[in-house]
């Protein structure tokens, strides 16, 4: 079985390779019946695909398009500028606020509960804490990961929503 990379056969068939590469592959194909068969099958399939004639759109399509176009469109383009300049900084601000909220929340939590959850040294304190006794070390780890993930998701959600909205603007105006 011939182990030549078929991409090279494609390059030869569609004349997309370099002259040198084409010459090399052509030399191989002359020797290799398997590659010749493959190229023949490729030609048959592409010929069959190409045998289908083209169809025309309905007459008057162009008129329908032109009739619906507002001739003074730059007003709409202004909206694109707004979407690009105003939404992006807003997204950054929201993500920063989200992160600050997370940090502040963590500090507040530590301030009020540090006597119950002595975090230093981190892991030992967790295990010895009142929650650690009930949940065990793995349970505590799971809870912490869950809380961390929740905070991150909450911080990112507005960003993702706005990102989606700005895509809609780009979709509509190009």
């Amino acid at each position: 079985m011939c182990n030549i990379n078929k991409n090279r056969l494609l390059a030869l068939y569609f004349h997309e390779g370099t002259e040198r590469e084409d010459k090399k592959i052509r030399g191989h194909v002359e020797q290799c019946s398997e590659c010749r068969d493959y190229l023949l099958q490729l030609e048959e399939t592409t010929n069959l695909l190409n045998s289908v004639t083209e169809v025309k759109p309905l007459d008057g399509t162009l008129d329908m398009i032109v009739d619906t176009l507002p001739l003074n469109a730059p007003e709409n383009i202004q909206t694109v500028e707004w979407a690009k300049t105003d939404i992006l900084p807003l997204k950054s601000i929201i993500s920063i606020v989200g992160i600050l909220l997370f940090i502040t929340g963590s500090l507040v939590f530590l301030y009020f509960f540090h006597d119950k959850l002595d975090f230093l040294p981190f892991w030992d304190a967790l295990e010895k804490s009142w929650a650690g006794k009930y949940l065990g070390s793995w349970g505590m780890a799971a809870i912490l990961f869950f809380l961390f993930g929740t905070f991150i998701s909450m911080a990112l959600t507005p960003v993702l929503i706005l990102e989606n909205q700005s895509k809609k603007y780009r979709y509509y105006f190009g």
Binding site: M64, I65, T68, L69, A73, I77, G174
Partner: peptide, 9 residues
């Protein structure tokens, strides 16, 4: 139609 309208915009 949508393609050429989009092209316009």
């Amino acid at each position: 139609q949508e393609t050429f309208t989009r092209l316009w915009f």
